[in-house]
């Protein structure tokens, strides 16, 4: 059976781009606040449904969907930080409490979405025009996704190296006390990161909803590879995530080919991310971050 390797590589770039957009916010907030926010799955779901609301229910153009997802999830991220996590942390919650709190928040958001838009899966009802480039089958949406990821990578790089906020994020992540002593406004930087990260999660969710389908469990279905990307990249490291997103994208797409050749179900795609997660924890729990850290 012939495998179209060009297509596999292209699909890997699509998957990697999606994981990059989805994981940037998670890894940065994880690095700053020190706990994994499991409600992140629901930020993605909300992004997808905001797009659905704007496109299907209000009848606007699809560009507005991205703006709506970005803004709504950004606000949600800021509210989640201010209203739940900082509140809990100020009352002396430990790391496990914060993780349980994030799962609880996730349930609240998921069931509100489920109640408003219903549980059955649905779609945007847009046919994305596809065309062939040589042996490749591509659609506008996939190209837009890769383009968004590239733009994001450039912006994040400039933000983290050239702006005060970006430097502050890196500073707090590696040494909060020193950052505080240097006069960095930790509160403001953390809030901005939570809002921005959640907004990006919303965009990722919207892309995924447009490529596949929407359901209130959309984010939950994506959370495992996104966590694998975060751990493989090294918590808090943007450059680590950049590499890890494409590594896992590639592994998943090659894995799907291997699974079909072996006659196994392609549903095991998710298990590939899980195996990478476990192997990373055994061999290199600090992730790839060290390879990218400039001292």
């Amino acid at each position: 059976m012939g495998v179209n390797w060009a297509q596999v590589l292209f699909n890997s770039a699509v998957t990697g781009s999606l994981y990059l957009i989805a994981a940037v916010g998670l890894t940065l907030t994880y690095g700053l606040s020190g706990f994994p926010n499991f409600a992140y799955a629901e930020f993605m779901t909300l992004g997808a449904y905001m797009g659905y609301f704007v496109v299907r229910q209000l009848g606007f153009d699809v560009y507005f969907a991205f703006i709506a997802a970005f803004l709504a999830c950004g606000i949600l991220g800021a509210l989640a930080y201010r209203g739940v996590f900082r509140f809990l942390a100020n009352r002396g919650a430990n790391k496990i409490h914060l993780m349980v709190g994030s799962i609880a928040l996730g349930f609240v958001i998921r069931y509100i979405i489920g109640d408003i838009w219903g549980w059955p899966a649905t779609t945007f009802g847009i046919r994305w025009p596809g065309f062939d480039i040589g042996p490749l089958r591509v659609t506008d949406l996939w190209l837009a996704l890769i383009f968004t990821a590239l733009v994001l990578a450039v912006i994040m790089h400039l933000l983290l190296t050239r702006t005060k906020t970006g430097k502050a994020i890196r500073g707090i992540s590696s040494n909060p006390e020193l950052a505080l002593a240097s006069g960095i406004n930790i509160e403001r930087v953390t809030l901005v990161t939570w809002a921005g990260g959640a907004a990006l999660a919303g965009i990722a969710g919207l892309f995924w909803g447009a490529i596949a389908s929407l359901s209130p469990l959309l984010g939950w279905a994506m959370i495992l590879p996104v966590f694998a990307v975060t751990i493989l990249g090294g918590i808090g490291s943007f450059y680590g995530v950049l590499a890890a997103a494409f590594i896992i994208g590639l592994a998943e797409n090659i894995g799907v080919v291997a699974l079909t050749q072996l006659g196994l179900s392609t549903e095991y795609r998710m298990a590939i991310a899980f195996i990478i997660l476990i192997v990373t924890l055994i061999l290199r729990p600090q992730g790839l971050a060290k390879a990218f850290r400039r001292t």
Partner: peptide, 12 residues
């Protein structure tokens, strides 16, 4: 749905 929303709020 309301039950799980309330559970979530209660836990927080």
């Amino acid at each position: 749905n309301l039950q799980y929303i309330l559970f979530g709020v209660l836990v927080i």
